[in-house]
Design a protein around this nucleic acid. Structure first.
Lengths: 186, 186
DNA sequence: GAAAATACGGAGCGGTGCTCCGCTCTGTCA
DNA sequence: TGACAGAGCGGAGCACCGCTCCGTATTTTC
């Protein structure tokens, strides 16, 4: 998309992205889209033309991060200890969830709705996590009765619980510790 | 409050409660209050006079249930197996969370804000769960580094994850199974 | 039946997401 | 360089939201 559009369009695109990043960071993923347009110095119509849905805006902000998480999973699937690798990946996944309040909900919604602009990158990330899970299960280090969807739901649930707490990072770490012990075989 | 008010007031109170129960069940805890008033055949002002906040409405609908859960915890604290008792209680807690979508969030919000009308009953329930937890920890059946607040956050997080899934009941059961194994000592 | 107390209802305010369309500005081509 | 097609812009407008405020209606009391 860069280069192919008019220069004013490209400029507004970038201004909107910057404003959205700030607004989501401050007010969570349900920040006012009007405020974002205002902050970008742009009309509300312009925002909707560049990003027809809120998911499209989130996708533009998060795609690279989700892709990185997917690559990270593939990288970790070469690690010697499959169980440890899964723990590492889950930790990084959960850690990233604190950037925008409401992000776990957005991810779960995107996974449920394949028309969502966020769907593709989330699904790719889940698939990569699933491969990590499969390997840990094959190695006998993780309970066999757990699916990738459940794993993602678990991570999202813990991240959500963190959001609700006074110290999200500490809460997530503790809940993750419990969850990992719960995932281990017997 | 029953008997002490005007008969029309008492009637509208009950109509509102019935409409709210239905609306929350259908649309979750963030159902439109205007719709609830409309459904009750009452003005929006009347709704706000009877229930000044959404939490007040929820409290009226849930107080008895929370009280029952508190009593249940006290009853279970006499059970022979403290760990099993905790599992039973958590299961019942999580099971109740599926009645209204968004309920886990309401509970966590209420616990965080002691001015909320829901706060008292939620806090009492958490305290009762905490006693159950203490006993399980004293018996050496549950990890010592877990607090009542974390336990509630965990339960709410799993319930929230269930809400996001296609089959909430099955998802909650599975996540709870993982969580319980994670809570057990080593 | 009159007076006092209480409750009612909805217009109205500022906010939201989202659409639609007249106008502006940019890139292109003669 | 100047004109023109069309891509891009912006905000008025719609329907909804939570919430307040106050003139009116109803119930209770005397």
């Amino acid at each position: 998309m860069p280069g192919t559009a008019r220069v004013d369009a490209r400029r507004n695109h970038d201004l909107l992205l910057a404003a959205a990043r700030e607004a989501f960071a401050e007010h969570g993923t349900d920040a006012s889209l009007r405020d974002i347009a205002r902050q970008a110095g742009v009309g509300i119509g312009t925002l909707y033309r560049h990003f027809p849905t809120r998911e499209a805006l989130l996708e533009a902000l998060l795609r690279s991060r989700f892709d990185a998480l997917r690559d990270r999973a593939d990288e970790l699937s070469q690690a010697p200890a499959p169980g440890e690798a899964l723990l590492t990946w889950l930790s990084e996944l959960a850690a990233g969830s604190v950037t925008y309040r409401g992000l776990p909900e957005s991810v779960m919604t995107a996974l449920r709705d394949d028309r969502s602009q966020l769907h593709a990158s989330c699904a790719a990330m889940r698939a990569a996590g699933g491969r990590l899970l499969d390997r840990a299960q094959a190695a006998g280090e993780v309970r066999g009765d757990v699916t990738a969807a459940q794993l993602l739901a678990l991570a999202a649930g813990l991240a959500w619980a963190g959001e609700q707490s006074a110290d999200p990072v500490a809460m997530i770490r503790q809940l993750l510790s419990i969850a990992m012990q719960g995932l281990a075989t017997r």
